[in-house]
Amino acid sequence: MIEHHLDDDMLQQYAAGTLAEGWSVAVATHLALCPACRSKLSMLESVGGYFIDSEPADEAAVSQSWESLKAKIDAGQIDKVVPIKKGSWSDHTYPQPLRTYIDAAGGLKWRQLGRGAAQMMIPTSDETTTVRLLKIPAGQPVPEHSHRGVELTLVLDGSFSDEVSRFARGDVEMADDSLTHQPKADAGRDCICLAVTEAPLRFKSRFLRLIQPILGI
Results as ranks from 00 to 15, higher is better:
Y94H: 01
K135P: 00
I122M: 02
I122T: 11
Q140D: 12
Q96I: 05
D157T: 12
S159D: 10
L98N: 05
P137V: 09
R148C: 10
Y101C: 03
Q112K: 15
A117D: 02
L134D: 04
R148S: 07
P97M: 09
Q112W: 03
T128L: 14
P141M: 10
M120Q: 03
L98D: 01
S161D: 15
K109S: 07
D162R: 11
L113R: 15
P141W: 07
I102M: 09
A118H: 13
F167V: 04
R132D: 12
D103P: 05
T129M: 12
V142A: 05
R132H: 10
L108P: 01
L134C: 12
L98Y: 01
A105R: 04
P97G: 13
M120L: 01
S165V: 03
R132Y: 09
L152E: 09
R132C: 14
E144S: 12
R111W: 04
L152C: 13
V131W: 02
L108C: 09
L134P: 00
I136H: 04
E151L: 13
Q96F: 04
L113Q: 11
A138Q: 03
L152H: 06
T130W: 08
H92I: 08
R148D: 05
S159T: 08
E127P: 15
A117P: 06
L134N: 07
D103V: 03
G139A: 04
T130V: 13
F167M: 08
P95M: 09
M120R: 03
G170Y: 01
A117T: 14
L156N: 00
R148Y: 12
V131S: 04
V131Q: 10
G170W: 02
P143F: 11
T100R: 13
Y101M: 00
M121A: 13
R115E: 03
S125W: 04
I122R: 08
T124M: 02
R99C: 12
I122C: 08
S161H: 15
V164C: 13
L152T: 07
P97T: 08
F160R: 14
S146Y: 05
Q96A: 08
W110H: 13
L98S: 07
I122S: 07
V142K: 07
K109M: 01
R132N: 14
Q112F: 05
A138S: 10
H92M: 13
D126P: 01
Q140M: 12
F167R: 10
V131T: 15
D126M: 11
V142L: 15
